[in-house]
Amino acid sequence: MAALAGVRALRRLCGVALFLSQLYVLSGRAGSLMTTKHSQPQSTFAKSLTSTSTNTPYFKVAESTEIPSYVTKCPSNGLCSRLPPDCMTCNTNYSCIYGKLATFDCKVKPHVHCVDQNNQEQENFTINMTCQFCWQLATTDYVCTNSTNCMTVSCPRQRYNATCTVRDHIHCLGNRVFPKMLYCNWTGGYKWSTALALSITLGGFGADRFYLGQWREGLGKLFSFGGLGIWTLIDVLLIGVGYVGPADGSLYI
């Protein structure tokens, strides 16, 4: 009887152990299912974040507010036909007759405001100008650079390559900045009247030659007392007609 009771107790113990093991397995599956259900929306949310972060954000490019330099030359609310050439863009008509008046269709540049004869703002207008290239203009219509390294009293008279720019109010065809060969015309600040006065009064001491920067000739006149008056008379004549000039080769002012 004791052995039979022991066998029954052992069976019960095994049954309890089997029940506990099955319960443990079932609880593990339920936990995995719950983990999967909760992790799925998180992964979806993570994917959505990832996909969004890979897209390049769109930023609207701000328009430039910088005012062009030519605007300072353009009077505001003036007549369009009287604007400087830098304030407009014109359709060039190269078929016009040289030296004759021609009409050109023009349009104001950005940031430029002008009006017509009726004080109404406009963008498109016409201008009348003489048909000629910029380098064919009169010398009073452009400004050129000066050279200080050429001789103005040489024979033949030297030329130099100058850069010329058309004045703001002048209209012409082609480039408004152009090169041009000009005669040497620079001055070092020497006055013809001063040189002549020194030659007449103190020419015997070489003052006129010293003033013009010709110190060798000045020393010669000084130590020879003006060649006993002969050099003085000759220099008065030469300076008077402009044959003797500054030693640096510049012109009198």
Rank of each mutant, 00 (worst) to 15 (best):
T201D: 04
R216L: 15
Y58M: 06
G226E: 01
T165L: 01
C96E: 06
A207S: 07
I170E: 03
Y70C: 00
W186Y: 10
G189F: 12
F223L: 12
R11A: 09
Q214C: 02
K180G: 00
C87P: 02
L101W: 09
K221F: 08
P41T: 05
N91T: 01
G227S: 08
P68F: 06
P57F: 12
F210I: 05
C144D: 03
C144W: 02
Y58W: 07
Y98F: 12
Q22S: 13
N119W: 09
M129G: 04
S64G: 05
V7K: 11
A162L: 05
A5W: 04
L83H: 01
A17P: 07
L219F: 13
Y24K: 06
K109P: 00
R159N: 14
G245H: 04
I97M: 09
R159M: 12
T50G: 14
I253V: 05
N93P: 00
S69M: 10
G31I: 05
V112G: 01
S224F: 08
A102Q: 09
S95A: 12
H111W: 11
N124A: 15
G240S: 13
K73E: 12
K100G: 00
G188T: 09
R82E: 15
R209T: 00
K180N: 01
S76P: 02
V241D: 08
H171Q: 11
S69W: 13
V153Y: 11
A46R: 09
Y98Q: 13
P84K: 01
L233F: 07
L198M: 08
T52H: 13
S21D: 03
G226N: 02
F133E: 08
E121W: 06
P85M: 03
T232L: 10
V25K: 05
T139R: 10
N149W: 06
L101E: 15
S69F: 11
P179S: 12
A3T: 14
A17M: 13
Q40F: 13
G226S: 03
C96S: 07
T35A: 14
A207H: 00
L212E: 01
S95M: 08
G220S: 10
